[in-house]
């Protein structure tokens, strides 16, 4: 394989990984931007999405249905959690959120083990998606291209939603000044609940999309959330653009790192994060709190 072809294929691989990472990171950054909550359960919700996705597909045989069921389940759970636990804690210190979301992550992981067992499960792709296409005469899985498209579509939709709709306006207002937003007659509590539910749904959708590629296993959540943290911190907590840039950076660093310097790849993303935070404590696109 000539270097240019290899480079192209690796770029496509990196883009598809970036797309998956974007789904979980975007929710994390939205939750932080609007609620000032670092959600440690976000990886577990991603994992929940993967499991619900696989289970739905096993039961119904439809991959498409699994992409609907997974975010729905996570949204319901997220909404319940926000109303029952988080909403009681907004007046308190940061550390309170840390403990409750960590507790949720722990409980959710165990609940998943209880329901689906400890073995990893893989989703089967429908025939129409499991094929390959030829990129510069080399075979490449269609599904990875589809992931890139899904990530792109999600990014555009969310961006348009944030910038062009009334709800998006409300979200941005609540992120910048919740007191003023509430004083203008908006129910900030409901905005927070909606954001949390949507962010959970996004993570679960990412999980369901990842299930055919990564398979649903119990370690999935605690591994993927670290990547998401790295992305969100590199991009700047609460920044949409930063999250997109961070996802690309980490996706490319991991894909190319694993190929060209497997010994250093694991440490590279963390070193990248340290470098960014030392130079710009607020992240690339964020503001210092």
């Amino acid at each position: 394989m000539d270097p240019l072809t290899l480079f192209t294929l690796q770029t496509l691989n990196a883009l598809s990984l970036s797309a998956l990472l974007f789904f979980i990171s975007l929710g994390l950054t939205l939750i932080f931007g609007i609620m000032r909550v670092v959600n440690f359960a976000h990886g577990a919700l991603f994992m929940l999405g993967a499991y619900v996705g696989v289970a739905t597909q096993t039961a119904s045989g439809s991959f498409l249905l699994s992409l609907i069921a997974a975010p729905l389940a996570a949204a319901v759970l997220g909404l319940a959690f926000e109303r029952c636990a988080l909403s009681r804690l907004y007046a308190r210190e940061h550390s309170a959120f840390l403990l409750v979301t960590f507790g949720l992550a722990l409980a959710l992981t165990e609940a998943i083990r209880l329901i689906w067992g400890a073995d990893a499960r893989q989703a089967e792709l429908p025939d129409s998606l499991s094929g390959i296409v030829f990129v510069m005469d080399e075979p490449f899985p269609i599904y990875r291209l589809l992931l890139i498209g899904a990530g792109l579509a999600c990014a555009l939709l969310c961006w348009a939603g944030l910038q062009r709709t009334r709800l998006g306006l409300l979200l941005r207002a609540a992120s910048q000044n919740p007191t003023m937003t509430a004083a203008l007659g908006n129910d900030v509590g409901r905005v927070r609940a909606a954001v949390f539910a949507m962010a959970c749904a996004l993570a679960a959708l990412g999980g369901a999309l990842a299930a055919p590629l990564l398979s649903a296993s119990l370690g999935l959540g605690s591994n993927v959330i670290i990547d998401a943290f790295v992305i969100v911190m590199i991009g700047g907590m609460g920044s949409f653009l930063g999250t997109a840039a961070g996802s690309l950076l980490v996706g490319f660093a991991q894909t190319f790192g694993n190929y060209y310097a497997p010994e250093l790849a694991l440490g590279m993303t963390y070193a990248l994060m340290i470098a960014v935070l030392v130079v710009r404590p607020g992240g690339l696109f964020g503001r210092v709190e």
Binding site: A85, L89, L99, G103, A107, E110, A111, R113, L114
Partner: peptide, 20 residues
């Protein structure tokens, strides 16, 4: 119980809410 993590997780959530 095998699913101790479930109860431990719920315990944390309750402690945070009721024992600030």
């Amino acid at each position: 119980t095998e699913s101790w993590g479930l109860f431990l997780g719920l315990l944390f959530i309750l402690v945070v809410i009721f024992a600030p």
